[in-house]
Design a binder for these strands. Structure first.
Length: 319
DNA sequence: AAGATCGTCAACCGCCATTAA
DNA sequence: ATTAATGGCGGTTGACGATCT
């Protein structure tokens, strides 16, 4: 639209060419599609002229790559895709294009928008810096496990066991080697019942005094987040231990628990452990300061259903 | 009902790297 | 070797529909 942005085309050349801006019309889309269908992509400035589009080459390229290209996927991101974005962003940061390469059909723009509108929104609501270790851990220990759970539920639930979980195809594309090299180190045990879990938590809290510098130690804070996650699952753990183990310790999961088996395409959920050994306290404070209880991640549409932070606090209070 | 605010997403901008002339 | 054109990327903006007050 010409009113999309106040016209920067003040040069006589631009005036003469009357370059259009803003949303594309159906007619323009048709012109672009037809031209590319018969001549292919590339040489975008030339393409724009030859196709009869009063657009910059850049604009044409963007429209094609982000919208018109046949393999561009539309619609909501699947849990698998969300999981992958979170995982890859933790590795690479704002390398949207690189991340997009691992999500077929998704564009860097879409991923960037997702991050800004969904992920950073949560950080804002929680008054946490989205780049902080605390928020990273929140993602790893609450959001990602939840996505895993959704992935698990949406895949063939009936055939799933505690030992075998079909690897989401997208996950299969990343870090298999890394996963295989680290998974063996994952401890294989966790609390077997509620009492054991609560005892473990007790122990953690007693140790918490020495681990208050969450910002100074990523490991420390992530360990504490593990425990928050752990707390939130104790009740459920009673009835479905495998699921809880499998979805609730992402810090371990991400580094150690892509238990890929090249033959079976499976990863072993048992490799995901609950046996973390650190403090609860160090993340508790920022959470409290941020009125987490009112920021229900589920109600907020956070990843279509994450932990209720109120629930987390309820469980902590229970202890 | 109407105005204000929020959330989403398509599109633009500027910068940098690469390629072609 | 130089320079202009092009492509690619990440950051940002603004339109618009949805929701809230």
């Amino acid at each position: 639209m010409s009113s999309f942005r106040k016209s920067g085309a003040s040069s006589s050349e631009d005036d003469a060419e009357q370059l259009r801006r803003g949303p594309w019309t159906l007619e323009e889309d048709t012109l672009l599609i037809n031209y590319i269908a018969s001549h292919g992509e590339g040489r975008w400035n030339l393409l724009a002229k030859r196709a009869g589009l009063r657009r910059t080459g850049k604009s044409c390229r963007l429209r094609w790559l982000n919208y018109l290209k046949p393999d561009v996927k539309r619609g909501n991101l699947t849990p698998q895709e969300q999981f992958l974005i979170l995982e890859l962003h933790s590795k690479w940061g704002n390398r949207w294009s690189r991340i997009a390469q691992h999500l077929p059909g998704r564009t860097d723009n879409e991923i960037k928008n997702y991050w800004r509108t969904r992920v950073e929104k949560q950080a804002r609501h929680l008054k946490i810096d989205s780049n902080s270790a605390a928020f990273q851990n929140l993602i790893r220990c609450n959001w990602m496990p939840r996505l895993l759970q959704k992935m698990e539920e949406s895949s063939s639930v009936s055939s799933m066991t505690s030992e075998n979980l079909t690897v989401p195809p997208l996950l299969d594309q990343i870090s298999q080697h890394e996963a295989l090299t680290t998974v063996q180190q994952a401890p294989r045990h966790g609390p077997r019942n509620l009492n054991e879990a609560v005892q473990s938590l007790h122990q953690l809290e007693q140790n918490s005094d020495s681990e208050h510098s969450a910002a100074s130690s990523c490991v420390s804070s992530s360990e504490s987040m593990k425990n928050i996650s752990k707390i939130s699952q104790f009740a459920e753990y009673q009835t479905n231990p495998y699921r809880i183990i499998g979805n609730n310790d992402y810090n371990t999961l991400s580094k150690d628990c892509y238990y890929f088996d090249n033959n079976s395409s499976c990863y072993n959920m048992e490799a995901i452990n609950l046996a973390s050994t650190s403090a609860l306290g160090d993340f508790a404070s920022p959470v409290g300061d941020c009125h987490m209880a009112e920021n229900n991640w589920v109600d907020d549409g956070f990843a279509d259903g994450l932990w209720s932070m109120g629930e987390l606090w309820e469980l902590k209070s229970f202890h």
